[in-house]
Every structure is written in structure tokens, then in C-alpha cells.
């Protein structure tokens, strides 16, 4: 993921609960910035789950979160994450 590899960040990121994914590819196909792709790994159910393949492109718009029929992914803007951090701290 972006932060761990030191790659350039986009405006937002996605969170994935990989065990819920059924590999329908709604999120990857309809990501408006083509930021999401599939993992090489399988989840417990045997599906490739989504990962941010182009973190620099992610706007955190959460369209993936709205499309996902399995509640397995959602997007957040970094701005909102920082706000959450402040709130929770």
C-alpha cells in the first residue's frame, strides 16, 4: 500500500475486508480513476480481492464502496482520515 512502499499518495485510499470479497469486479471495473486492481492472492473463499494497484490515482471517492455488493471495500479521503485521527485522539 501507498504508505508502506513510499509511493506517491493520491487524495485518498481504500480499505478492504478481503474475506468478504466474492470477486465480482464491480469495484475494479467502475473505479473512475482505474486505481483498483485484483490481488494475486486468494481470500478464504478462493477469490482474488481488490487492492489499490495505483494508489496515486485514488481520490477516496468511495464509489467502490457504493458499488460493492458484499460490503468488502470502501474508499476514504486522506483529509477525512486525518480528521478521524484527530477526533479519536
Amino acid at each position: 500500500m501507498a504508505s508502506e512502499t513510499g509511493e506517491k499518495k493520491g487524495k485518498g485510499t481504500v480499505f478492504v475486508k478481503s474475506e468478504l470479497c466474492k470477486g465480482c469486479s464491480y469495484c475494479t471495473d467502475f473505479c473512475p480513476t482505474d486505481a483498483i486492481g485484483f490481488s494475486k492472492e486468494f481470500n478464504q473463499k478462493g477469490y482474488h480481492f481488490p487492492i489499490l494497484t495505483h494508489p496515486e490515482k485514488c481520490s477516496g471517492c468511495d464509489l467502490c464502496g457504493l458499488y460493492c455488493p458484499d460490503f468488502a471495500i470502501f474508499g476514504v479521503r486522506y483529509k477525512d482520515l486525518e480528521e478521524m485521527r484527530l477526533k479519536q485522539a
Binding site: 465480482c24 469486479s25 464491480y26 457504493l66 458499488y67 455488493p69 458484499d70 460490503f71
Partner: peptide
Amino acid sequence: GCGIGTSLN
């Protein structure tokens, strides 16, 4: 790939 989950979302 069922769309019902999306509608529920």
C-alpha cells in the same frame, strides 16, 4: 456478482 447487495448498499 449479484446486484441485490449493491442495491442494499
